[in-house]
Measured scan of single mutants.
Amino acid sequence: MATGGRRGAAAAPLLVAVAALLLGAAGHLYPGEVCPGMDIRNNLTRLHELENCSVIEGHLQILLMFKTRPEDFRDLSFPKLIMITDYLLLFRVYGLESLKDLFPNLTVIRGSRLFFNYALVIFEMVHLKELGLYNLMNITRGSVRIEKNNELCYLATIDWSRILDSVEDNYIVLNKDDNEECGDICPGTAKGKTNCPATVINGQFVERCWTHSHCQKVCPTICKSHGCTAEGLCCHSECLGNCSQPDDPTKCVACRNFYLDGRCVETCPPPYYHFQDWRCVNFSFCQDLHHKCKNSRRQGCHQYVIHNNKCIPECPSGYTMNSSNLLCTPCLGPCPKVCHLLEGEKTIDSVTSAQELRGCTVINGSLIINIRGGNNLAAELEANLGLIEEISGYLKIRRSYALVSLSFFRKLRLIRGETLEIGNYSFYALDNQNLRQLWDWSKHNLTITQGKLFFHYNPKLCLSEIHKMEEVSGTKGRQERNDIALKTNGDQASCENELLKFSYIRTSFDKI
């Protein structure tokens, strides 16, 4: 039985969820670079991206490699990797027998973001014989899940209580170790020597080791999670996991709180800001991140802002960003909400898709409305799209047979046209069989910064309504002859009103 693990408890099935942008060198404390989270699957090609990484700022997932063999891993080693800020997950990587050479110096898994409450997941690794993470000293947050690894031993010899604050939620089941077939031998045991430290858990006094050649490092209890030197002297209180010299914040392997210019500090002093819960960055760093993602459509890219001495992905609820200094300031009234469309555009074809934009005031991208039916549609669209004030790209209304009016965009005031449909149009209306009105132009103002209007096959939309939009939106004169079809717009509506004058002759039985 794995020490510190839980057996036999019912657990939810383990679901495996399925960018080499360097964020800056980590400095003297770390020998390499800070790398983003990685999802490495199918083959070993991307694994080489770990070569210079000291910190993975995010998670590391290595999974679904069915053609790899043990010899493929023999020359692979990433000794610079010290810390993973989120979680480490391995799933069905064939041929991998140990992690001792792959990650010989991995010391800390912070667990800032977890995989279903777990910071370390080893699942269905069919050839893994031992973990071998002999320098792993601290899992700051989260638990361990090690399950269905039929060859995995050296679990009962690990004292997880020396690595985690609590072992109650560890789930370590259905491994070879369960069948008591392992016969784990710690260093020196074969020669009758006791080389590794022994600890007591559940009444068992057991030597602690990761492999037959690597003991588990056990520091004096007084050192807590700070770690200790090879001689057993406690590291500085700002260290986490390990250090090369005692009581020196510049000799830590990793930091308990924050890293700044080669030393570990309790908090980031001005003019620095907390970033990702582990390091200090200056304003320029946060500003660069903001600008890199301002026009990016890459998933996970955030326009970072500053709030409460932190550089964070977005302002919290009730705050909006001051564009001059990136500071989050309290909103006066309802907060603006910028919604970034991942692929640059979004099609609204149902109430469900409209709900995804609920509360958005600025759309960074283009909207395509293609709704053919739905219950209580006008009210639903207004509830979900009615706060949109600005669209950076274009607005396209296409084959939306259920629409009679666009009044559900009740606050839309600006279409920038930074991206144009077919390279020309910022407003595009095609084949809307029941569209009769755009907006009530006596109450609604709309500016279209650039781009043209396109109207074709809107049989109940009168040309007068379209011409009014040209005047109000500032697009009059931009359109070419064929942009607004004269014969297919309003051709099934009563669009022309003329005053009919009647004269009559009164007659009676005795007068003409």
Rank of each mutant, 00 (worst) to 15 (best):
P271L: 02
P79W: 13
I82N: 06
D159L: 03
I82E: 14
N325E: 10
E231K: 05
S98Y: 03
C196V: 13
W160Y: 10
N325T: 04
S237N: 14
L120V: 06
F205V: 10
N43S: 06
C255K: 01
P70K: 08
I158V: 07
C153Q: 09
I139K: 01
R92H: 08
D165F: 14
C223R: 02
H274S: 15
C196N: 04
D178N: 15
R256L: 07
H302Y: 07
L332G: 15
K294N: 02
C219Y: 03
L99F: 08
T221P: 02
Y273V: 09
L133E: 01
K80C: 05
E207W: 14
D86F: 00
L332E: 06
R298C: 13
R162M: 08
E33Q: 10
T157Y: 11
N282D: 02
P269G: 01
Q276I: 04
G300L: 10
V144K: 00
I306V: 08
L152T: 03
I122Y: 00
G333E: 03
L260V: 09
A190Q: 14
C228M: 03
Y87I: 00
S284C: 02
K224P: 07
I122C: 06
D39N: 15
G37C: 02
I163S: 01
Q216K: 05
N257S: 07
T194D: 07
R141N: 14
V253H: 11
W160L: 05
N308H: 12
Q216M: 15
C35E: 00
C215A: 09
L50V: 06
G188V: 07
H290F: 14
E71P: 05
H302V: 07
P313D: 10
N308F: 09
Y134G: 12
C53Y: 02
F103G: 00
C223L: 02
C215S: 07
P197Y: 08
L120T: 02
D165C: 14
L99D: 00
H236M: 03
S213P: 13
Q216H: 10
S317T: 13
S296F: 11
P187T: 11
Q303N: 08
L90K: 01
F258D: 01
D169T: 11
K224E: 14
R298V: 11
A156V: 10
E238S: 08
W278Q: 03
P79T: 06
R298E: 06
E124N: 11
C255M: 01
I146Q: 04
R208E: 08
C280M: 00
M83W: 02
Y304W: 14
C255L: 00
C311T: 00
G333L: 03
N295D: 10
E180A: 11
W278S: 07
P316T: 01
L240Q: 05
Q276T: 10
Q303A: 05
M83E: 12
L63C: 14
T229S: 09
R110V: 04
S166P: 10
R41A: 15
D159M: 04
L89R: 02
L152Y: 01
E151V: 14
C293K: 03
S284L: 12
R298F: 05
C264W: 01
G333Q: 06
D184A: 12
N195H: 10
P316G: 01
I139F: 03
T85A: 04
N135T: 10
G111C: 02
S284R: 13
A198T: 10
E168L: 10
E168T: 13
N149T: 09
C311R: 00
C53K: 00
M65R: 02
T211H: 09
H307L: 05
N150M: 05
P197W: 05
C182R: 06
C235F: 00
S225M: 06
A190T: 11
P246F: 11
E124R: 07
E130F: 12
T329W: 06
G300Q: 08
N195F: 10
H236F: 02
R298L: 11
L99M: 10
R69H: 07
L102Y: 01
K292C: 09
N117Y: 04
K217I: 13
N242W: 12
E207Y: 09
M38N: 09
F283E: 08
C255E: 00
A156Q: 09
V108G: 01
D72R: 02
S112F: 04
I84T: 00
F285Q: 05
F66S: 07
R46S: 14
C53L: 00
L76T: 02
F116N: 15
S77E: 10
S225A: 10
H307N: 04
A156N: 15
E97P: 04
K224L: 10
C243L: 01
G183E: 14
N309V: 03
L60S: 00
K100I: 05
K251R: 13
F283H: 10
T68A: 12
Q204L: 08
G111N: 00
T157Q: 10
C255V: 00
D247N: 07
Y87Q: 00
T45A: 04
D178V: 13
H127V: 05
Q216C: 11
G192F: 15
C209P: 03
M125L: 04
L29A: 10
G37D: 11
R141W: 10
T194A: 06
G142V: 01
V206I: 04
R298I: 12
Q216P: 06
E49S: 15
G192W: 15
H28T: 08
R74F: 07
L50F: 05
E97D: 04
H302C: 05
V108S: 10
E49K: 02
C264F: 01
Y273D: 01
L47M: 09
G203A: 11
L240T: 14
A254S: 07
Y154T: 11
S225V: 05
C182L: 04
Y304Q: 03
T85L: 07
G111P: 00
N149P: 01
N202P: 08
R298A: 07
R69P: 07
L128F: 12
S324Q: 05
N309C: 03
S161P: 03
P334D: 04
V144L: 07
G95Q: 09
E151A: 12
N202K: 11
P70Y: 05
I139H: 01
K224I: 09
P36K: 12
T45C: 10
I312Q: 04
I146Y: 02
H302Q: 14
L233N: 13
S284M: 13
G183I: 05
G333F: 03
P197V: 06
M321P: 15
E314G: 05
